[in-house]
């Protein structure tokens, strides 16, 4: 079983990914992002994506009702269905699902973050949260009948309300349920770079232990990303490859070890 995680940037070669997957003889499912197209839609609808920064310095998307609407239009709307269409045209019998369909991805609403407003410190709540578990029966039902799940946000919270969530965390709850042996994460970079701005500083392989050491040196978003990657290994993944999603054959490249392999 392979979990394919597609970044949501404009430069990801989705067609190349699907054509590679069509030749794969293993079972797989796709989890995809769509932040680029979502931002564009939100902009044109006059409700641009808003980012808020917490008092402890973290910035994240403010997911109010309009933002969830834009996610439904961008992620589970146009991106999900164009990927499903591409799959079908390449002989992959895809079924597109958001996390709220059949309560596929169940999570818990964030309790609120602290933001500065003039002199005051305020609690800010929105429609976002962390994924906790997966409706494994529904996934297995579809996989056993030859369907390929193509998954995206929104997910559902403890009151069945649609919420935003982070794909890095979602791939983890998927892994907990499916125990896939390989996870391919396709991004808009050659892989994990020692120095973000130097595409030649690619790290070819990294052990979970080395990852833990690096995790301790960084803060914020990068720290969270490394923690999420490490958890994948803890949850039984034999190989996690972060590879370039912009090339002609992104999946073949990743399976051949191109990019950063975490063992």
């Amino acid at each position: 079983m392979i979990i394919v995680k597609l970044g949501g940037g404009r430069e990801i070669n989705v067609e190349g990914v699907i054509k590679d997957l069509a030749e794969l003889d293993q079972k797989f499912l796709i989890l995809h992002g769509a932040n680029a197209v979502r931002d564009e839609i939100a902009e044109k609808l006059g409700k641009p994506t808003r980012v808020v920064t917490s008092v402890s310095g973290y910035s994240s998307v403010f997911s109010d009702k309009d933002a969830i609407d834009a996610i439904m239009m961008g992620y589970s709307g146009i991106k999900n269905k164009r990927i499903v269409e591409l799959c079908q045209r390449n002989g992959i019998n895809a079924v597109g699902l958001s996390g709220i369909d059949g309560k596929l991805i169940q999570g818990e609403r964030n309790k609120g973050i602290r933001v500065r407003k003039g002199e005051k410190v305020m609690i800010l709540r929105d429609y976002s949260g962390k994924p906790k578990r997966v409706n494994k029966e529904l996934l297995q039902l579809l996989l056993d009948h030859g369907y390929v799940p193509v998954i995206c946000i929104p997910i559902t919270d403890e009151n069945n309300v649609a919420i935003n969530s982070e794909n890095d965390d979602i791939v983890n709850v998927l892994q907990e349920a499916l125990r896939a042996d390989t996870i391919l994460s396709l991004i808009e970079a050659p892989g994990y770079l020692e120095n973000r701005d130097d595409e030649n500083s690619l790290i070819q392989t990294i052990t979970a232990g080395e990852l833990k050491a690096r995790e301790d040196q960084v803060e914020g978003r990068m720290k969270r990303k490394m923690l999420a990657l490490r958890k994948l290994i803890d949850n039984g993944a034999k190989t996690v490859v972060i590879s370039d999603g912009r090339v002609e054959h992104p999946i073949k490249g990743a399976l051949a070890g191109k990019g950063t392999t975490i063992k």
Binding site: N35, S54, S56, Y58, S59, S60, V61, S63, N110, K111, G112, I113, R114, I123, D126, S128, G129, K130, N164, S165, E166, D168, D169, G220, R221
Partner: peptide, 11 residues
């Protein structure tokens, strides 16, 4: 009582 400290929301 204010909820427990959370750094960020993810995305």
């Amino acid at each position: 009582e204010a909820p427990k400290e959370e750094e960020d929301w993810g995305e």
